[in-house]
Design a protein around this nucleic acid. Structure first.
Length: 653
RNA sequence: GCCGGAUUAGCUCAGCUGGUAGAGCAGCGGUUUUGUAAACCGAAGGUCACGGGUUCGAAUCCUGUAUCCGGCACCA
């Protein structure tokens, strides 16, 4: 006998080996009909699975949140069944549920076409209608290998070969079709429902390794209901409207062209945005005890060999030769330059921690397929800094850094979402002992500095040290990796950085590599998508458009614009001979935060009618009042905080 | 770099199975002096990404190249 504890706390005794469905039937026939999965001590099981042990027990219907992943997994199997029916000879490999959907990877010589997708989707719906029971079978490992080999499924056989000898495997059968799978699954293909859609085709390497053959991947999305599917598709459309490439073009921020692929031509408005962000970052760094430097863009290859970049990163570096036979390389990272500045002259323990910042323009030869808008480019600027410090200063510096990072993200209406710790990669410098220390130190520092779990990412560290990745979340819940904090014992050693300790001995500093935006270009891209182009006043490239209703108001409009500009506002005038409706519409579509309208009345009275983005209300103010108000609203958040503090002091005084 | 798709006017897009390119918006010229999300009229604008090929004839078919897009791999 086994004891099952139900969600309401009641405990009942059943025969061992009873199925979840039978348990449900013992409560209510309707419940048994709705049951598609059960949960035993947190583990999802098929509803027809014999229960051999007791525990916390729950019966799930297909609209339970836990069932969604299983629905997606089922749909991926239905996809595979449909594909093998329509395209005999195609081999199956793996097909997991993923966020919002699923995919399945097939081995096939001729790739699928977009037209095939419609036919496959049609067949999938037929399979759902067939209501094929999904049945779990336990096979011996060797039997399974022999079977899948016999039917030409060499990838499946290879997967099973990776399972330890002597272990049993499970095979799920639906109709004539079967697949090796861990499960669980819903009771029949009908239970998966038809709220799915095949979305894209892609190539994908077998086992994710580019040395392996490329498989044909079909992606799809699947939901518990048609309404959920529609909502998902709507979210995708909304996200597409925020695409920084689209907004960048529409708002005339930047462009890219063939002759400089992966590099950005910043237009005046885009560059204004860039400069605003850079000026803000510079103030924040200054206030937090950083010194700013500028190191050369190109250095002799020998320098990069000494730092190790040539060996570990050389394939990503742009190089050039001079007529005199020098071999030079364009910097892909700022660290070696900063160590040169550190090394110049003598450093004392009194100089530490030394926080050396640079808006460092880096060039990296990225694979062509990696390029993506202004997110992944070949020329970018890091808001980079290297903190040279003693080992016992690592934690304090990490905490200080995370505090700054949090404050900066929130000034851009975003927030820190998660932290990951990338551990030693295969290609690396330094002994295992050094890596042991570095990983532990950084892990401890991270835990102390952030109030959230730190997930490990094995093998993803930089060649010189482990790295923390800070992922931020934007307005529509998407996450982006921007900030990073890396601990490095290797470069100070290789480039011979040292300082004089209290006892007069020479010591090695450690380096903390850190960035908050990561790449300025990428961060601005994230920001564009976060605000969907509707920037807050302090960031907006054009803050105010002064526009007129009749040409009689032109003189006052020019005077008003000059007054606003004198207060540091970014102002454009629009005196075109167009109806005010037309001008309002155009500047609203351009997401200008403030439109200052001047008609004959305003011109006579020396007033502005302010209209804010997203509102059709008017605020009619005297020019000076409007200038005061807007100038104060346009203060960057850090400046506004300082102003508020000063006002507080004055009032307190 | 790999797999698939796309590339037509400044922008957004039509152009069916080959018969020699079209719209809206913007820009330009004129009329209109306008009160809070599109006034009216007119003229103009294109080696259909680029190079080969098939054909009497190619934006359309084939092929190569480039860039972009979606993935994979890589990554700030």
């Amino acid at each position: 006998m086994i004891d099952l504890i139900f969600p309401d706390g009641t405990k009942r005794e059943f025969e061992a080996g009873i199925t979840g469905k039978a348990v449900a039937a013992s409560i209510a026939i309707s419940l048994a009909k709705r049951a598609v999965l059960v949960k035993l001590d947190g583990e999802l099981l098929d509803v027809d699975r014999a229960l051999e042990r007791g525990g916390k027990f729950e019966i799930l219907s297909r609209d339970a949140p836990e069932a969604l992943e299983t629905i997606r997994h089922d749909v991926s199997h239905i996809l595979a069944e449909a594909v093998q029916e329509l395209f005999p000879g195609t081999q199956v490999t793996i097909g997991p549920a993923i966020e919002d959907g699923f995919y399945y990877d097939f081995a096939r010589d001729t790739p699928f076409s977009l037209d095939d997708l419609a036919a496959i989707e049609q067949r999938m719906k037929e399979i759902v209608d067939r209501d094929e029971p999904i049945v779990r079978e336990v096979w011996s490992r060797d039997e399974a290998i022999a079977h899948f080999k016999s039917i030409g499924e060499i990838y499946k056989a290879e997967i099973i070969e990776g399972i330890p000898a002597g272990e049993d495997v499970t095979v799920y059968r639906q109709g004539q079709w079967k697949d090796l799978c861990r499960g669980p699954h819903l009771p029949s293909t009908k239970a998966a429902g038809k709220a799915f859609k095949l979305t894209k085709l892609a190539g994908a390497y077998w086992r994710g390794d580019h040395r392996n053959p490329m498989l044909q991947r079909i992606y799809g999305t699947a939901w518990a209901s048609e309404a959920d599917l529609a909502a998902h598709l709507h979210r995708l459309e909304e996200a597409e409207k925020r695409d920084h490439r689209k907004i960048g073009k529409a708002m005339d921020l930047f462009h890219m062209q063939e002759e400089a692929k992966g590099m950005i031509f910043w237009h005046p408005k885009g560059w204004t945005l860039y400069r605003t962000v850079e000026a803000y970052m510079r103030r924040r760094l200054d206030a937090d005890g950083y010194v700013e430097v500028k190191a050369p863009q190109i250095m002799d290859r020998e320098m990069w060999e000494r730092s190790g970049h040539w060996q570990k990163f050389g394939k990503n570096m742009f190089t050039c030769e001079t007529e005199e036979g020098e071999s030079l390389a364009v910097k892909p990272m700022n660290c070696p330059g900063h160590v040169q500045i550190f090394n110049h002259g003598q450093k004392s323990y009194r100089d530490l921690p030394l926080r050396m910042a640079e808006f460092g323009a880096c060039h990296r030869y990225e694979p062509s397929g990696a390029l993506h808008g202004i997110f992944r480019v070949r020329a970018f600027t890091q808001d980079d800094a290297h903190i040279f410090c003693r080992e016992d200063q690592i934690e304090e510096e990490s905490t200080k850094f995370v505090r700054l990072l949090n404050s900066i993200y929130s000034d851009f209406n975003m927030h820190l979402d998660s932290v990951k710790l990338a551990l030693r990669p295969e290609e690396r410098f330094g002994t295992d002992a050094v890596w042991d220390v570095a990983e532990q130190k950084l892990d401890r520092a991270a835990r102390q500095a952030v109030n959230m779990p730190v997930d490990p990412l094995p093998g993803e560290g930089a060649f010189y040290g482990p790295k923390l990745e800070f992922h931020l979340k934007d307005a529509i819940g998407r996450t982006w990796q921007c900030g990073t904090l890396q601990l490095d014992y290797v470069l100070p050693e290789r480039l011979d950085a040292e300082y004089t300790a209290e006892d007069g001995s020479k010591q090695r500093p450690v380096m903390l590599h850190r960035a908050i935006c990561g790449s300025m270009e990428r961060f601005i891209g994230v920001m564009i998508e976060n605000f969907a182009g509707a920037f807050p006043l302090w960031l907006s490239p054009v803050q105010v458009v002064v526009t007129t209703i009749t040409s009689d108001a032109d003189d006052f409009a020019l005077k008003a614009a000059a007054t606003l500009r004198a207060r540091g506002l970014r102002v454009e005038t629009d005196l075109r001979n167009e109806k005010i409706n037309y001008k309002i519409r155009e500047h609203s579509l351009a997401k200008v935060p403030v439109i200052a309208v001047i008609g004959r009345r305003e011109a006579e009275e020396g007033k502005l009618a302010l209209r804010r983005f997203g509102s059709d209300g008017q605020q009619i103010l005297m020019l000076d009042e409007a200038a005061n108000l807007l100038a104060s609203e346009a203060q960057p958040p850090d400046v506004a905080r300082q102003t508020a503090e000063r006002v507080g002091e004055v009032q307190a005084g």
